[in-house]
Design a protein around this nucleic acid. Structure first.
Lengths: 149, 149
DNA sequence: TGCTAAATGAAAATATTTTTCATTTAGCAT
DNA sequence: ATGCTAAATGAAAAATATTTTCATTTAGCA
């Protein structure tokens, strides 16, 4: 069993949820992709296999997996919500604006900024959202090659 | 004329756009609110006045104002897009998760982190999204008072 | 092997955003 | 001031995205 599947089994069991074929397919589709996927994209990929599961189930499953911390949302200006596999613990995303590849990183060092803002504005800070966007190595190469043509 | 209105007039003129009553109303609704507003909320507030403008115009106007840099989007998990007034230049938001108040700050000091990530992952970084969420001073007080009851 | 609560799927409802196109109007030239 | 024209608006419809409802199926347990 792949580590992600193992996590799924454990997380579901601990919380009184059932392990179904649909849930496994959805998580598999996401963990097989480096990109972030919308509910519709997940649905499409899952149904390319034999299984044929309903879009509603995809929505429900994404919400559940997200709650369990196995996947998480990516925030793109103007686009509909999309999801990517979550490593365990606090982390952030770097997203390629061309191919959608998501790379994770964990150390964000925002503590000091957070403390200062809290002091200056009186806000009690609970969380933060940090994402970088840019071009991944592969897309840069590709662009380079195309320029040579 | 209020400074925000002045900016609107200038920004529109410089780009060959026309100054219409609808555009002024939409910007006014946003600049009168400390909170971030969805298109539907902007529409509602604008139409409480006499004017009655169409929701389509609100959508179109929000897009335009955003392009002109007069307003900007706020990113909330699972919610539909919403907008808030933009100060000039690079900045970020702190958002109260209770009342939706938005406070801006400008210095994010992400340069070093950015350089390191770029070096380590090969990404060419183009931009970042940083938002803090928490409870504003007012909402903390309010919660305190309710606890006393 | 059967029971039951949980999960699924299909359809409908709701919400959100965009497109189309006829009508109106801001800004400019006279 | 007045008329012209490209840009802007509004209404309706279309497209897209998401949620609800409810009858049927199934995982996990006794």
């Amino acid at each position: 069993m792949r580590p992600t599947e193992r996590k799924l089994t454990l997380a579901l069991g601990h919380n009184g949820y059932k392990l179904t074929a649909q849930r496994r397919s959805v998580l598999k589709a996401i963990s097989n992709s480096h990109e972030h996927l919308t509910p519709a994209e997940v649905h499409e990929r899952v149904n390319q296999e034999n299984s044929k599961i309903g879009l509603v189930t995809v929505y429900r499953t994404l919400e559940l997996l997200s709650e369990l911390g196995l996947i998480c949302q990516v925030h793109r200006e103007g686009k509909s919500q999309s999801y990517t596999l979550a490593p365990s613990g606090h982390h952030h995303h770097m997203i390629c604006s061309e191919c959608g590849t998501v790379a994770d990183f964990t150390d964000c060092d925002l503590g000091e900024l957070e403390a200062r803002l809290s002091r200056e504005t009186g806000f009690e800070i609970e969380g933060h959202l940090l994402e970088f966007s840019g071009r991944c190595g592969d897309c840069q190469e590709q662009a380079g090659r195309n320029a040579d043509d």
